[in-house]
Design a protein around this nucleic acid. Structure first.
Lengths: 237, 237
DNA sequence: CGGGGGGTTGAAAACCGTCAACCCAGGTGG
DNA sequence: CCACCTGGGTTGACGGTTTTCAACCCCCCG
């Protein structure tokens, strides 16, 4: 229900394996532009896709700066955001040969690229690495379970409150007793993440502001005045 | 959106580590009764808990027969089912020291018990085992993502259709062109899994029957007459 | 200055949850 | 043998919440 403990920089070894530009195919989408880099650090602008559903899963990425969202486009054209990934999180760990979802930078973002082959090699060479990787996968499972629990909540208010609590748990910025939370994502992103429309998201945030639970200095910044009341709204109906 | 490929019997090595009866604490719940067994095979009756949220995660289980559901009790008393686990699936793989959810047998069920310590040992000794374990974790992630996608669907019809498709994907029983699907779980279980009320689940199933998409010989058995139309309902609208 | 993306707010409608009644099967006990 | 009870399931009516459709605002940028 709440945020998972951050596990920073678990992957530290650099990897200099060959570079396939096919990783950054974009279709109608924006594309990562610095595909010619020789380092494994990649910089992405807003709405640039890191990889697409169906791409060969040759690499895994660690977010080092910014936010990445994992999403799917449904048959009816609707977009559903499966997860947001923050610095320290891993993106692209999947069992089959191809990715099962798209990954896109929400704003300006930096990621570190690790080849799948290198990953396998390290698993063979160092068993503690395998355990750490497994721990990261289970951490992702925990986060996913919390998201599931959040989506199963009936009311829109509970969903939004839970979402803000997750962000507040990641934020270190304080203003007195209040927690300052930046929203790099748009209302549309939040709606697609919570299974709500933008209007409902906007209305719910407005209601939280009216009732004094949060403050809204800018549309992209929320100040949580009372995490307690927010938790009540998230937990009980 | 659809069922994950079954990965049967990935864990084959038996494990004879010591047995802690504290695993089966039950509180007000039913309890697994054969805790004195000396084998690692465990038989469970309906509504028996395998472990509870907060229990020390000393073991991992492989379902060999029947269905296990993973669930949480929300602060407001509501139950939310995170997943159903079928034969071949693994239950209880988690990163922290304690389970983050409850696990309960839906009907008569058999599971195989593997100690966490034995798991770690095998990871150290055999790197291919680590990879298999990682693959299982990512398979679980895939299933969870599909569930998320399902829950984010706006309409109840789409959710139920998606749920039936998942079960149909696991079923091998055919009746002509139709797929026969057994429902070991109750309507309440389905509702708690999909974030719907029993009434809505019942009404939606009735509607699918009226429109000829499915047949309902018994309340515990669904015959999918047209997987195509079911997929349309699950995807679009 | 005009246009577009993102956000907010209002009114109406559709959908789902709530409350309630009823049915059915199986088990228990008189 | 039957009456009774209980758990699970279905169906109806009503009300609340969210979606839909729409208008409007604001800011940034060409």
């Amino acid at each position: 229900m709440t945020a998972v403990a951050a596990n920073h920089a678990i992957l530290t070894r650099s990897d200099a394996a060959g570079f396939e530009s096919s990783l950054f195919r974009g279709g109608d989408h924006n594309r990562a532009s610095n595909a010619g880099d020789h380092t494994n650090a990649i910089q992405l602008g807003g709405r640039e896709d890191l990889f697409l559903e169906g791409d060969e899963a040759t690499h895994v990425y660690e977010v080092t700066e910014g936010v990445v969202c994992l999403y799917r486009i449904m048959p009816d054209g609707n977009r559903h955001i499966l997860a947001f990934r923050f610095p320290g999180d891993i993106v692209g760990l999947c069992s089959p040969a191809t990715y099962g979802y798209n990954a896109q930078a929400v704003g300006d973002t930096r990621v570190r690229r690790i080849s799948r082959a290198g990953l396998e090699r390290m698993i063979d060479e160092r068993s503690d690495f395998a355990r750490r990787l497994l721990r990261m996968a289970t951490a992702e499972l925990n986060a996913m379970r919390d998201h599931l629990t959040c989506l199963a909540s009936k009311s829109a208010e509970a969903k939004v409150a839970d979402f803000l609590l997750m962000l507040a748990g990641r934020s270190t910025a304080r203003a007195g007793n209040a927690v300052v939370v930046n929203l790099p994502m748009t209302r549309t992103d939040i709606g697609d993440y919570l299974g709500l429309t933008i209007e409902t998201v906007s209305r719910t945030i407005s209601k939280l502001r009216r009732t004094g639970v949060i403050d809204l200095p800018r549309t992209t910044q929320v100040v949580v005045r009372s995490t307690g009341r927010l938790a009540e709204l998230a937990g009980a109906a």
